[in-house]
Design a protein around this nucleic acid. Structure first.
Lengths: 206, 206
DNA sequence: CGACCAATGCAACGCTTGATGAATTCTGCG
DNA sequence: CGCAGAATTCATCAAGCGTTGCATTGGTCG
């Protein structure tokens, strides 16, 4: 129905609309089940236009892959009360996920995509490494920073997985309060407790 | 090349070969990227034969979805030394995953498929619930059994995710020994520690 | 031996998918 | 104004997908 050529200027930021649509669909359905045509339809645009902007489906994925929450904001002020940083962290994360379904879906989508697509896994790894690790640096104990951050991430990832994706009854039906009590001390342990004494000797090459 | 009709009896268990091939491929590539033709090729069989046995691609998935390890064996004897069950459990799991790449791939595949496919998520949920929860019952404290089991599962799932799927450096490069020291006490906490006092009041309906 | 069913292979259908090349319209610069 | 280039749509392609109908062979039971 729309005329064929270029739109009058400033009528819309098409590129951004495509990215938004793609982000939503990748999150909902994962990489494979998201079709270019579906993205185009949601962005109200011709499929060929996506190729014009992002070359590939992979290019589109790479461009649409962004963290749905700001880790810095999530961690702000946690170092004021280092003794209870663990509980506070679980509480905040659960607060976001419970209160902001959109952010939750995007986060689940990141997992979904990262798990289904090797290239996305790499992107996700970098994304998490560059943001979360840095943001955690101020809260975490001095030694084994990378390991500590990853352990925190693994526990929260596991929770996300069990509660929102797989829907394992035990964690799906727990209240946020219960989870804070149960998991808070764990994150606290990862943040400041002992995690494996000496650095691993270089038994493995590479 | 092979003749057209039925094979002489007992010459091979074709059905099982299809299931094996399907299990491997689903684990490697997830549901969508596993094609019937690929399964057929790996099982050295005609694609139509898969439909003959399993009707659907979904039917094939349902039939191929099995736990690659025996949870009972994994947990056997843990109740002899309840104080160190957490460490022992991490150690055993890491032992299996490090020492038996095939079992690891299958486990990762379960995650992959469960994450990519709603129907598989349900199957996986039941599978885990029926086996792991029951097997854990003897090790875990009396109260909040379901929650405790799910917490243990979420932490181990998160580890699997971070170490073997996403490859987050902090946990990817840690030695099994380090991980046992770091995560053991956490599982111990989930198994026998306090996890949220009273059962949640029925604030939420349904 | 004949009837019937299970197991297997062949060929094909209809559909969807990601991608491409050309045509059209608008913008911005000289 | 004229013209290069960006933005947009259209029509179409080749490949791959899950699935189906049919033919053929072997086993089983009367």
């Amino acid at each position: 129905m729309p005329p064929r050529g270029r739109r009058p200027v400033g009528s819309s930021d098409t590129r951004q609309e495509i990215l938004t649509a793609a982000g939503e669909l990748f999150a909902e359905r994962g990489f494979e089940r998201t079709t270019m045509r579906a993205v185009a339809a949601r962005a109200d645009v011709d499929p060929a236009l996506i190729h014009h902007y992002f070359v590939n489906k992979e290019g589109l994925l790479a461009a649409a892959l962004v963290l749905p929450v700001d880790p810095a904001a999530l961690l702000a002020g946690l170092d004021k009360d280092p003794e209870h940083a663990g509980e506070a962290l679980v509480g905040r994360l659960l607060g976001v996920w419970e209160g902001d379904p959109d952010a939750r879906h995007r986060m689940v989508g990141l997992l979904r995509v990262g798990l289904s697509h090797e290239r996305a896994a790499a992107g996700l790894r970098d994304l998490l490494g560059r943001t979360i690790l840095i943001a955690l640096s101020r809260v975490v104990a001095q030694d084994h920073r990378s390991l500590r951050a990853a352990l925190v991430g693994s526990q929260m990832g596991g929770l996300l997985l069990g509660r929102y994706v797989l829907g394992i009854p035990g964690v799906r039906d727990a209240t946020p309060g219960q989870l804070v009590v149960a998991i808070g001390p764990v994150l606290q342990h990862y943040l400041t407790g002992p995690v494996g004494g000496a650095v691993a000797p270089a038994t493995a090459s590479r």
